[in-house]
């Protein structure tokens, strides 16, 4: 096992498997969040958020998710550092744009941006809902179902620049995913000439859906409040 994890492919295996797990998580997360768009009373979203906060299966998956995040960051960081050492003298002139896509070359930078966003995002919502509590969560809450809808929408309505941060976060995520989707399968060996095209296409659809969906929510909430 230690031999495996010392090998380049072994480390990338962990990045890929944890990444594909995070890709699944994002879809679930988007479905829950989209309740904000579908019901302006907030009841649907509050119930969904309550379910995610209390369901035993989700409770079990939560630490697994945290471990997945940490593995993904850790091993992506190790692989990136090692890869940088593989070219001690740089080219004077290199035209990378002719042979590869920008996102594929900048996964670490995109990932770091996403991490910064994640810290802001967690402190905005998850931290308050799970640990510290917040007065907005209590307002109009019934049967122990907290008013997460109010917490989320007030933030998006009161601070326009937070909306911009969320849109930028979604854009960075979209670019990251546009490369990550196919690459995750490729690293696991689950691709060939035929499937590469299919996975690339699916990956594009997926990243547009996820980035578009997450970006739409703050914008929608803000605009709806101004009408």
């Amino acid at each position: 096992m230690s031999n495996f994890l010392n090998s380049s492919i072994g480390k990338k295996f962990l990045v890929s498997i944890s990444g594909l797990f995070l890709i699944t998580f994002l879809l679930v997360h988007l479905v829950v969040n989209s309740m904000i768009l579908f019901d302006s009373t907030g009841v649907l979203f509050n119930q969904a958020a309550h379910f995610m906060g209390t369901n035993p299966i989700i409770k079990f998956v939560e630490p697994v998710l945290a471990i997945g995040f940490i593995l993904h960051l850790l091993y992506a960081g190790i692989v990136t550092l090692q890869n940088q050492q593989a070219r001690p003298v740089d080219y004077k002139k290199q035209h990378s744009g002719n042979s590869s896509k920008w996102a594929s070359r900048n996964m670490f930078i995109l990932g770091s941006l996403i991490l910064i966003f994640l810290v802001i995002h967690i402190s905005n919502f998850f931290w308050k809902m799970r640990f510290t509590g917040h007065e907005l969560l209590e307002q109009g809450s019934t049967d122990g179902v907290e008013n997460a809808y109010l917490l989320v929408t007030s933030l998006f309505i009161d601070w326009w620049w937070i909306d911009i941060v969320y849109v930028l976060g979604a854009v960075a995520l979209g670019f990251h995913l546009s490369h990550a989707f196919w690459a995750g399968f490729q690293t696991l060996g689950l691709s060939n000439i035929k499937w590469r095209k299919r996975l690339d296409f699916l990956g594009l659809l997926y990243s547009i859906l996820v980035a578009g969906g997450f970006a739409l929510i703050p914008v929608w909430v803000k605009i709806a409040s101004m009408l």
Binding site: S8, K11, Q85, S99, A183
Partner: peptide, 17 residues
Amino acid sequence: VAKMDELGFGGCTNTGA
């Protein structure tokens, strides 16, 4: 793969270049 790693080549990040 072990030899390739040992000789200082980096890991593939699927850029396709």
